[in-house]
């Protein structure tokens, strides 16, 4: 069964390659949203099985997007994996992740194997 993944990240090149990699496995269908302001709309339209969410974005940041999703009955059950290039402990602490309602956080550069395992894990818990 092909799972639907929504990637919300303003880094266009990165999301493009992420999509290619995930779709190459044949297990995922990926939609990209580079504008975090449109993230909620995209989630409503696409109704993904999981969301990959960047933290530092112009407009709404990852925490804002996750909080908005939490507030939407239709979206609050969707697991969120956060990805970030932030380096400080403080910024990427699990507290911040919990606050944002995300289950996992992956540091950038993202190791594809780790990401795939993480996705399988959160999807299996559905």
């Amino acid at each position: 069964m092909v799972r639907r993944i929504l990637v919300i990240d303003d880094e266009a090149g990165f999301t493009k390659l992420l999509k290619m990699n995930l779709e190459k496995t044949g297990q995922y269908e990926v939609r990209i949203e580079n504008d975090s302001m449109k993230a909620l709309n995209a989630a409503h339209e696409f109704l993904p099985d999981a969301v990959l969410l960047d933290i530092v974005m112009p407009g709404l940041d990852g925490g804002d997007v996750a909080a908005q999703m939490q507030a939407e009955p239709l979206l609050q059950h969707i697991p969120v994996i956060m990805m970030t290039a932030l380096v400080s402990q403080e910024e990427t602490s699990q507290d911040a992740v919990a606050q944002a309602g995300a289950m996992n956080i992956l540091p950038k550069p993202v190791n594809l194997d780790v990401l795939l395992r993480c996705l399988e894990e959160v999807l299996s818990q559905q």
Binding site: E11, F14, L17, N21, K108, V110, L112
Partner: peptide
């Protein structure tokens, strides 16, 4: 780190 992430992918 962002370009590095892209490179790794």
């Amino acid at each position: 780190k962002n370009p590095l992430a892209l490179l790794l992918l």
